[in-house]
Amino acid sequence: MQEHREAAHLAALGREWIAAWNSRDLERVLALYDENSEMTSDRIQALGFDSSGTLTGKAKLRMYWGKALTLLPNLHFELIDTYVSPDSVVVFYQNERGAKICEYLRLNALGKIVQGSANHLAH
């Protein structure tokens, strides 16, 4: 039964992640993340941030996502599904441009996101 509750909690986190982004409230999004969380995405380099495609720490995430929100005034995510493991959730969603994306989110023991990776469909 504990496993079921954990899976339900992780799925709920995935739904909250979508709702936080759709609220366009950057602090609400960041509240889901650990202070030293790490994020990887091909968009990081594309927006002029770290050439490795990975950022570490909330301060860097705030700058990156703040710029992204400014550039994408119509940003909206539609949840398709969530997939869970004992310490992570994958949020499968579609953005406002119709692109389908999988966001891998690994959590620490406190339930905060410590590692994220945006995975886009290869063309």
Rank of each mutant, 00 (worst) to 15 (best):
M1G: 13
M1S: 11
Q2G: 06
E3A: 14
H4R: 14
R5N: 13
E6D: 12
A7W: 08
H9K: 13
L10H: 11
A11M: 12
G14W: 04
R15N: 10
E16S: 11
W17V: 05
A19R: 11
A20H: 06
A20S: 10
A20R: 00
W21N: 09
W21K: 07
N22R: 05
N22G: 03
S23V: 04
R24E: 12
D25E: 14
L26C: 02
E27F: 07
R28L: 12
L30C: 05
Y33F: 15
Y33C: 08
N36M: 04
E38P: 01
M39T: 08
M39F: 14
T40Y: 03
S41V: 03
D42Q: 12
D42S: 12
A46L: 13
G48E: 02
F49I: 08
F49H: 02
F49D: 00
D50E: 11
S51R: 10
S52V: 05
S52T: 15
G53V: 04
T54P: 01
L55P: 05
L55R: 00
T56G: 00
K60N: 08
L61W: 06
M63W: 03
M63R: 11
W65R: 04
W65H: 10
G66E: 02
K67R: 15
A68V: 14
T70N: 10
L72Q: 15
L72E: 15
P73D: 03
P73Y: 06
N74W: 14
L75Y: 12
L75H: 09
L75E: 07
H76P: 01
H76W: 11
E78Q: 13
E78V: 13
L79Q: 09
L79S: 08
L79D: 05
T82L: 05
P86Y: 06
P86T: 08
P86H: 06
D87R: 01
D87N: 12
S88Q: 12
V89I: 04
V90A: 10
V90N: 03
F92Q: 09
F92P: 00
Q94M: 13
G98N: 05
A99V: 12
K100R: 14
I101Y: 10
C102G: 15
C102M: 14
C102F: 06
E103H: 15
R106I: 04
L107A: 02
N108F: 01
L110H: 11
L110V: 08
L110R: 09
K112Q: 09
K112L: 14
I113E: 03
V114E: 03
V114W: 01
V114K: 04
V114C: 05
Q115L: 12
N119H: 12
N119Q: 15
N119T: 13
N119P: 07
H120M: 14
H120S: 09
L121S: 07
H123S: 10
H123V: 14
